[in-house]
């Protein structure tokens, strides 16, 4: 199991607190199986952190919510992220470099 003990390589989305944030967290736990997913809750936002690389698949978020989820749905609720972003056809990837 990959552990997130190196804070310098933690990457992932910062989500506006709410239903989408909770769904993205659940999806990330599923899409990054075997890897530790850390969270940091603030009054209005949720930091989701995975070491080195973090992937969130739109379909997985949609499965959690029970409806179709697009890139725009994630973007509308993601004011920031740690690391570098790569938009892909089926999801969003966050990488440390």
């Amino acid at each position: 199991m990959t552990t997130a003990d190196d804070a310098g390589n933690l990457v992932g989305p910062v989500m506006r607190a709410g239903e989408i944030a909770d769904a993205v967290l659940e999806a990330i736990q599923e899409d990054n199986e075997g890897r530790e997913v850390l969270t940091e809750a603030h009054a209005s936002y949720l930091r989701i952190k995975v070491a080195d690389e973090c992937f969130v698949r739109f379909e997985t978020v949609g499965d959690v919510l029970g409806r179709t989820v697009t890139r725009g749905d994630i973007e509308s609720n993601m004011p920031s992220f740690a690391g570098f972003i790569r938009t892909e056809p089926d999801g969003i990837r966050f990488v440390a470099r």
Partner: peptide, 14 residues
């Protein structure tokens, strides 16, 4: 911009 638009939004929410 993260500072003013996310950090401060946490204060605003509270």
């Amino acid at each position: 911009t993260n500072l003013q638009f996310i950090g401060l939004s946490a204060d605003a929410a509270k």
